[in-house]
Design a binder for these strands. Structure first.
Lengths: 200, 200
DNA sequence: GATTACATATGACAGTTGTCATGCCGGGAA
DNA sequence: TTCCCGGCATGACAACTGTCATATGTAATC
């Protein structure tokens, strides 16, 4: 099978590519260091599979997966990520991702997952299977935007002018987010939202 | 040369170990998933080198490096980390670390670095060499403690009772930290301190 | 057509946060 | 020993934050 490896961390990308290439039935035809590059490679090289990190520059792995699905491209996606955030997993499933592994798993699982997915199956790290039933993102679009900026250290006034809202509205959104997430203040709220993948 | 790989992320640990083991002159004699395990392996297996991540459970790679130095153990350390935080690099140098690579570098550099260090040399990612002259941590011990807790979402009152300080003192420390780091508020201050490795 | 969810806004209030002046104590450097 | 630094504290003040009641408009849903 012809595979692309998309991962921004050079060492891991190189190591995985080299190891996968050693397998008789796997050929690594491209390596991408960010989402845009991955997308271009998938279009031009038409691989069977793509091993993809989520947190990459320019386009996240989930963005890429969604575009592949829209374009009805046959390339199957196996997500390989550090974090078991429920938001990520749910979004990946909706994007038609076939495999979802944690970077914490042993490497053997990667080859196994690729073969399983290539054969039409699925492959999901056992730690993640249960997350299908976990909480959905309770935040609205606006609440997310506001919370993201608050997490970057901006005050209500600054957030307001960036989003062309009134300063009171911003505080209302923050207050709602804080309550929805059962936090004490904006700091805890961003922590919680982040941990669940609700801001990405 | 006999090498130990200490890295908490299973996939990277496995991949690096497998690749290094393919080299004729390198033998991976142990793999550790956290700092304590790494320390024990170094004591029992007496390897020539240890490839070590910084951010690991229980003991960080820098903690381990410092203990190795104290114990005057001959094992040389090559740090392999995601972040080019000046605080990390400076602390590593003081701990007698011989190699410091970013996980962003290509893998070939790892083998090269190990050989160089084993031969008595040093190996430092070029992006990092200049950091020797960068800003030292301007925060005092107390300011760091307080800032860490503030970053976890605690308010002044809570921080005060955890550290057995008055609530006013906590706010003084936070105020000082905010000014030293040239931030607008505690949120930005934690972001800046974190980015520079001044909280770890 | 009524209900519900979201985006938006205002004004008021209490509580938290950031700043500053000022003070005390102990340890180390000049 | 005197002076400064760090740790610790207080009180006061302005600014920011979190909450609430209340209001309008626009979709979607029932």
């Amino acid at each position: 099978m012809r595979v692309i490896v998309a991962e921004d961390q050079g060492m891991l990308r190189g190591a995985l590519s080299a190891l996968l290439d050693l397998e008789d039935d796997i050929e690594v035809v491209g390596q991408a260091a960010d989402g845009e590059q991955a997308l271009r490679m998938i279009e031009t090289l038409d691989p069977d599979l793509c091993v993809m990190d989520i947190e990459m520059p320019k386009l996240t792995g989930l963005d890429v997966a969604e575009r592949i699905k829209e374009a009805k491209h046959g390339c199957k996606v196996v997500i390989l990520t550090t974090f078991s955030r429920s938001g990520y997993f749910q979004r990946a499933m909706r994007a038609g991702v076939k495999g979802f592994l944690l970077k914490d798993s042993p490497i053997d699982e990667l080859g196994a997952a690729l073969r399983s997915v290539h054969g039409g199956g699925r492959a999901v790290s056992p730690e993640l299977a249960m997350q299908l039933w976990e909480a959905e993102n309770p935040l609205t679009e606006r609440e997310r935007e506001v919370l993201k900026l608050a997490g970057a250290g901006l005050g209500a006034g600054e957030i307001a002018s960036r989003l062309f809202l009134s300063h009171g509205t911003v505080r209302n959104y923050l207050s709602e987010a804080i309550q929805k997430l059962d936090a004490k203040n904006r700091i805890e709220a961003t922590l919680i939202a982040e941990r669940n993948g609700w801001l990405g």
